[in-house]
Amino acid sequence: MEFTEEQIERYSRHIILPEVGGKGQRRLLDAKVLIVGAGGLGSPTGLYLAAAGVGTIGVADSDAVEMSNLQRQLLHSTPDLGRQKCLSAKETMEAINPDVSVVPHDVRLTSANILDIIAGYDVVVDGSDNFPTRYLVNDACVMARKPLSHAGILRFEGQVTTIIPGEGPCYRCLYPDPPPPGLVPSCQEAGILGAVAGVVGTIQAGEVLKLILGIGDTLVGRLLLYNALEVTFREMRIARHSDCPVCGDHPTVTALIDYEEFCSLRGSGSVSEEVTS
């Protein structure tokens, strides 16, 4: 399909890059990306993917916009208070770029629905705010062999990596099981510097664009640690573990588990009760 004159102008700074070109821009327009969580990480990711012309962007989030979200969740504005995040996100992204079709998934991801939802996408972005969802998304992406951009943030720090099942380590290769309730605080409990979400979510957007374009080196096999107080980026090498519970040689996690229940069974102060960070 030919570009319109407006598209040639809109994407001119992409098309002029030899690594992208008209062919790459077409790939972006044909790509389908699912963003899990329209929060601090999902906002910059969603904004950049929409502006870049990623043609289909799914947004999975069942929360409504709260006042405490607005300090960093740039997909939403003050008039959106109380609205469903996936609808607010859709409106913002489609206003940036009418070439983009945003598919709202106004559901909490569970073991029952996640495989059906991710089946329609080429790449998944984890911008969720709780461990049950993070482990569910990782396991589902390993099982469905979907590339996954993973990141987590807290206070002044972020961790980001890219997971391509079969090519490198998954989240469980690093952290085989979720931490016990109460050990690791949430953003609600410990806070988050808004711009940390911007830095880390923007790295995720870059990773997704490269995965679609098939250019450069991704964060597969590397865990990038960002510290905003020090302004340091530290890179750790990470490896697939042959005894990983989900991507190892003899996986013990062979079916998706409802981690929300699993974690809340382990005591009070469950990590599954957080509001969106």
Binding site: R134, V184, M236
Partner: peptide, 10 residues
């Protein structure tokens, strides 16, 4: 030796 915990927030 580096000791890291996963970060929940997003």
């Amino acid at each position: 030796i580096s000791l890291l915990l996963p970060l929940a927030g997003g």
